[in-house]
Amino acid sequence: MENSAAVNYKRIEKAIAFISTNFERQPSLEEIAEQVHLSPFHFQRLFTEWAGTTPKRFLQYISMQYAKEILSKERATLWEATQATGLSSTSRLHDLFIQLEGMTPAEYKQGGKNLHIEYRVDNTPFGEVLIATTWKGICYLSFIEHNLEKSLQALIAKFPEATFTAGRNEMQDQALRIFHHDWADMPQIKLHLKGTDFQLKVWQCLLEIPKGSLCSYGQIAHEIGTPLASRAVGTAIGSNPVAYLIPCHRVIQSAGGIGGYMWGINRKKAIIGWEAAKKQ
């Protein structure tokens, strides 16, 4: 006889398959819940625990991915993408892009064509970083692991049609002060991020971890209300586009292991030790 965890997993798997197959009809919560023989309330809670997001948001993600496929075609229009995803109006698709991508459908289709990004390389106690800004705020901060060319390629891949200029600005200066100044006397740093609702929720939670403190993946999952989504939390942390400012280095395994880090385990250990020393 299957245990309850296995039964619930199969229910969520079936629900995800149903949403993925029928997203063009934009099925309601009640209709999806009926497929797995649960009440809408129970299904919503169970789906959120297992998938790390609500059924409605998951449906939006699926719809968004398909709309992006449509818009990637040279002559595709916003109306065609709206029709293909089953949304009721182009304004709904517009709002969805703003919520999930941080840009309008037109901006997405143009690959950041009208976006100007200024970047520079600077030194920190943990090696060189590539930092980039839009007019809204910091959009990218990465430790340079191998060489600058690879780091630049990674930045350009995120905004393939944007224009890039090497240069220095005040937003960059303010952000980089975090490595050299008193943390209690820091100006507010503006970030320009794009990500899913779940990713943004995880990144926001990371910002609340005090400097010099550590947290586990499970604790983050619990804090954002999805206690069974530790693996999804780990994936969101691994997608962090802004090193150090969004402190993914402060998250470790519940058993005490250091866990992974995009910019190298040794660098993560060094940062943790440095922060602990400055806290004293």
Rank of each mutant, 00 (worst) to 15 (best):
L78V: 07
L78E: 14
W79V: 11
W79C: 15
W79S: 08
E80D: 15
A81F: 01
Q83A: 03
Q83S: 11
A84M: 04
A84S: 09
A84R: 01
T85E: 04
T85N: 15
T85M: 06
G86V: 00
L87P: 00
L87V: 02
S88R: 10
S88G: 15
S88C: 06
S89C: 07
T90Y: 12
T90D: 05
S91R: 09
S91Y: 07
R92G: 05
L93R: 03
D95I: 06
F97S: 01
F97Y: 13
F97H: 05
F97G: 01
F97Q: 04
F97N: 01
I98Y: 13
I98P: 12
Q99D: 10
Q99N: 09
E101K: 15
E101V: 15
E101S: 14
G102Q: 04
M103Q: 09
T104Y: 12
P105Y: 05
P105F: 02
A106R: 10
E107Q: 13
E107V: 14
G111L: 08
G112M: 03
G112H: 04
N114A: 13
L115G: 10
H116D: 07
H116I: 02
Y119M: 06
R120I: 12
R120E: 14
R120T: 07
N123S: 11
T124S: 06
P125L: 09
P125H: 06
F126H: 02
F126G: 05
F126K: 14
L130G: 08
A132D: 01
T133K: 13
T134D: 09
T134L: 10
W135V: 13
K136S: 10
G137E: 02
C139L: 04
C139W: 07
C139D: 13
C139P: 13
Y140I: 15
Y140M: 01
Y140G: 05
Y140H: 08
F143H: 06
F143W: 07
E145H: 09
H146C: 01
H146Y: 12
H146A: 14
H146K: 08
H146L: 13
N147D: 14
N147S: 08
E149I: 12
E149Y: 04
E149T: 04
K150N: 05
K150V: 07
K150R: 02
S151E: 03
A154F: 14
A154N: 12
L155Q: 08
L155W: 12
I156Q: 02
A157W: 15
A157M: 10
A157D: 07
K158I: 15
F159V: 01
P160K: 00
P160W: 01
E161N: 09
E161V: 03
E161G: 06
T163H: 06
T163G: 13
F164W: 15
T165M: 04
T165L: 05
A166C: 04
A166N: 09
G167Q: 13
R168T: 09
N169T: 10
N169K: 09
N169H: 14
E170R: 02
E170V: 03
M171N: 06
D173L: 02
D173G: 03
Q174M: 11
Q174R: 05
A175T: 10
A175G: 07
L176D: 00
F179Y: 03
